[in-house]
Amino acid sequence: MNKIIVQGLKYKYPLSDMLALDDISFQVNEGEFIGIIGKNSSGKSTLCQALVGLVPHFYKGAYGGKVLVAGLEVKNHSLADISLKVGMVFQNPFTQVTGSKMTVYEEIAFGLENIGVPRKEMIDRIDDVLTLLKIEHVKDHNPFDLSGGQMQRMAIASIIAMKPDILVLDEPTSQLDPAGSEEVFNAIQSLSKQGITVILAEHKMEKVAQYCDRVLLLNDGRVVDVATPEIIFSRDDLETYGVLAPVYTRVCRALGVKKDGSDCYPVTLEAAERVLRKGVPLV
């Protein structure tokens, strides 16, 4: 079933002369994990905001085409309605924090209070996400006393607690160390396996390659391609779109070693190791 349908979406910010999104069309199935990649200003964050309705309801501007999320047409529904179905984790966790709550625990409760979740369930959900994101030990801290990494975990926790059908994340692990990013990606993957649809804008190509089912490549507000990580990262013209393939793909391409029986290069450490072991003799 299509959980997200985007048809001919065009969007221009107020005061801007250029289309930020230019005739975007794609569809996403329920439970799919989609990565959005592209250079800065290619439209990744704008597209994320179009899926939660901040484009056009909050930013205004000129809007055309259609975005359907979990059956709701974004243009015709309020942010409040859409927020019950789609949750978004902001690129900069510092801008997501409400500023009106004194503790991490209450900060995570904020969204739940707003949608009227009963107290008992609220407590259960908050406890769950505190554990999932490993931030129980800071639950009584002031959100602004957290480190960048802890704040990012809190930002993700507060959205996951709302149990959206669709989870949109804009570079959710930028402040995290490698072990922390891995943990967060695992947590997101397990949600995706439970049937939550995930859309993730990301610059860490190794992670996109490892976790995403399909990758959407954006350039100047247009969709260049939507395909599996292997197909996308094996494109010859990737660098012209300001994207560098995972290091494993680059090294296999330089050595001309493709995956067995396919026209694609490996995109993960394991796959690269496998083909390189067979390929060239080792030093």
Partner: peptide, 30 residues
């Protein structure tokens, strides 16, 4: 809980003796 760069890990898994830091170094060693 820190990881070496991806290319360093790949070279190590493939049994390279030296520690590799860049794609260029990797290709030269092959």
């Amino acid at each position: 809980k820190v990881e070496a760069p991806g290319i360093t890990q790949l070279a190590e898994k493939l049994g390279f003796k030296q520690t590799i830091l860049t794609v260029e170094e990797f290709i030269q060693m092959k």
